[in-house]
Design a protein around this nucleic acid. Structure first.
Lengths: 105, 105
DNA sequence: GACGACTATGTCGGATCGGACATATCATGT
DNA sequence: ACATGATATGTCCGATCCGACATAGTCGTC
């Protein structure tokens, strides 16, 4: 978010911060959701890169469009296991998965 | 395993290989179990490094000695979520977790 | 603004996971 | 050999997860 937008929102009575502040997560919990978000973003990138739809990709993985949408959204009902298995199933390497976890914003 | 031992075992009628060969896993499945094993080894390393017992560490994490033993053994009943949450709970960083996944043998 | 293709959200039943307990195995000291 | 502390293994049941379906929202094209 750029600083202007932040200022405008705060001027209007909003608090602007990250998930940790807003939901009052512990540092570990925050690190965990960031990790999940990083995997979810990578999953979307891989799919879009290939020019596939959610439905196509889900079928390929033996899953459903709705669940795949939840994966990309890092929904609370989606495990890291599922994200990692899906990424590996789409051809990502263990090295790539590790890098994404280690270096993602 | 060194080559001598491999030869001796194979001479005695054993097949020697990795989990992928033995259990006939697909490459993705093999990558996934390797990833889990890497996290499990790291978890043990972190604990031992601190000079803690499984029971102490489990209590710290709100878990039990038996489940923690299964974590270190990368038991099938243990999820990557649990391994990652435990590592973060013991003070490991997201970067370390990623590195372990990316670079482990 | 209706249609179609794609994505997002809510829910459910069956499957898997996790803490706990009991018990077994292993290591070390006496 | 026995005791003690630590780790490993098996099982149970409540909690969570996942595929599936239904349906709602979004976006572009006509």
């Amino acid at each position: 978010m750029d600083q202007n937008r932040k200022d405008r929102l705060e001027g209007a009575g909003w608090r602007v911060g990250n998930a940790e502040d807003f939901l009052e997560l512990t540092p570990e919990e925050a690190a965990f959701v960031e990790l999940k978000l990083a995997l979810a973003r990578f999953l979307r990138d891989v799919r879009v890169q290939q020019g596939w739809t959610q439905a196509q990709t889900a079928k390929r993985l033996g899953s459903s469009q709705s669940r795949f949408a939840k994966m990309e959204a890092a929904d609370a009902s989606v495990s890291v296991d599922l994200l990692v298995k899906s990424l590996l199933g789409l051809g990502a390497t263990r090295e790539q998965v590790g890098e994404v976890i280690a270096r993602a914003a």
